[in-house]
Design a protein around this nucleic acid. Sequence first.
DNA 1: TAGACGTAGA
DNA 2: TCTACGTCTA
Lengths: 175, 175
Amino acid sequence: CPNVSREAILGNVPGVEVGDKFQYRVELHIIELHRPLQSGIDSIRRGNGVLASSIVASGGYVDYAMDNGEVLQYSGQGGNLFAKDKCPEDQKLVVGNLALKNSMDERRPVRVIRGFKDTMDSKGRMVYTFSYDGLYRVEKYCQQKGPYGNKIFMFTLRRIPGQPPLRRKRMRNLI
Amino acid sequence: CPNVSREAILGNVPGVEVGDKFQYRVELHIIELHRPLQSGIDSIRRGNGVLASSIVASGGYVDYAMDNGEVLQYSGQGGNLFAKDKCPEDQKLVVGNLALKNSMDERRPVRVIRGFKDTMDSKGRMVYTFSYDGLYRVEKYCQQKGPYGNKIFMFTLRRIPGQPPLRRKRMRNLI
DNA sequence: TAGACGTAGA
DNA sequence: TCTACGTCTA
């Protein structure tokens, strides 16, 4: 029921298991695994602040995965990294970036969905397969120089132990 | 089956009747009533040329309906009418605009879907209801001055007789 | 009102 | 590669 307003869910979404695969972002939206259709960070209001509920790492920025997916480097949002006709700017600690920082401070779990471009559509273009990889904690973050010289945030997320293994054939950098 | 490449359908789509209502553009895409997710004009290759198969008039440009929906003024595409950070330009007789012209020359039917902003979502925002209004013919077109001073095309479409009536409570301008 | 790690078609 | 009468959240 898409017209019902909902807050994001913190932690696992009932009925969604580690390893579940999806093809479109709108599927993630419908099952409430990750509500935004384009944005990589979903969040939930909490008192006067905000917490990160889920992220999608589909290689659009400069994220990469290490150690068989146990650790994920995830770049912050903003700064016009994608915009074509706009100047790169330094990312700010607001909205999604702030939500990830708060989740770090409070040691809150964050759902991680990864998008792999490993399948093709009818025209031979690579399309995403999205995979629910489970709950992670934001371990730390730093500011570093982005690909266009502007400052970007880089968040380090580590998978919370005790979850089903990822069983991925090969773990590679997302970029 | 979204990954199967298909040509657009010319004329009525089997199973879709005049008056059928939809909520999202992706629904029109799935049933092949109108394939593009954003573009207002769908087309079909025909020999070395192109014909218009369907249009969506949802008020984004400067279209308006007259005569209880029998006649529709539909603006051409292009010219950066929507783009924010781009200069307005004269529309060109290419792609969708060319397809509509060709459909006029050959007197081919064009499916018309209208989007009315007459319902609300859970947050009180107006959302579209798309309605299949049947087959129209492109009667004529002209170039005129658009809202930003650039030249735009304006196509006149007239509903082909003998179809179920529209039975709309009130017909009003789309803009 | 604007921004966002979207999608499909030309 | 780019455009396109989208759609959701803040």
